[in-house]
């Protein structure tokens, strides 16, 4: 049986060296866990990825938790979670401290102006890709438009909107 320390260390590596969003992380997971260490089979990896996609929570986080659980039950899930989050969290805390300390620095403000503009472009690209993938028929288009109007015009709470969309999904996508 794998030790929790080993699970933690591999996920620490995955969490420390996977930049650039979901797909590079998935590739990294696969290389480290399936190809290199053979801790899980290709099929188990595909199933873990599927579970990550069909459970609430960030899919990549959930994929890691699922693999950890398959390796060593709850302890493995926790070791994978902490390992995966560790480096990013430490860096985010350091950057937050630096950011708040340097808040009035003109150079940092200039840098962040450029960064904020790029993040808008990044979000737009993600929304565009999600739109193409998810808005595929009149039902999904109606749900997207309704959610947009509910937030943009009627200023309803997004949490409430999502719960309502889930309830509508039960009605619209019920199997006969």
């Amino acid at each position: 049986m794998l030790s929790l320390k080993k699970i933690f260390l591999v996920f620490l590596k995955i969490g420390s060296f996977s930049f650039g969003g979901v797909y590079s992380m998935v590739a990294f997971f696969e290389r480290e866990l399936v190809d290199k260490r053979k801790w899980i089979t290709q099929d188990e990896f595909v199933e873990s990825f599927a579970i990550g996609q069909m459970t609430p929570g960030p899919p990549i986080v959930n994929t890691g938790i699922c693999i950890g659980y398959k390796l060593r039950k709850l302890g493995g899930a926790l070791a994978a979670t902490v390992g995966q989050a560790f480096t990013g969290t430490v860096l985010a805390i350091l950057l937050a401290a630096f950011y708040l300390y340097m808040k009035d620095n003109l150079l940092l403000q200039a840098v962040m102006k450029g960064v904020a503009a790029a993040v808008v472009g990044l979000l737009a690209s993600i929304v565009y890709k999600m739109f193409v993938r998810l808005v595929t028929d009149y039902r999904s288009a109606a749900l997207a438009v309704a959610a947009f109007l509910a937030l943009d015009i009627f200023k309803l709470n997004p949490i409430g909107i999502l719960l309502a969309a889930g309830a509508l999904g039960l009605v619209l996508y019920r199997r006969a």
Binding site: F131, A144, A147, I161, L168, G169, Y173
Partner: peptide, 20 residues
Amino acid sequence: VRAGFAGIKPAVVGLLIAVL
């Protein structure tokens, strides 16, 4: 689960457009 998710996913797109 499948039906609920199918309802929520396109709604997320609509919300993200508004936030964007």
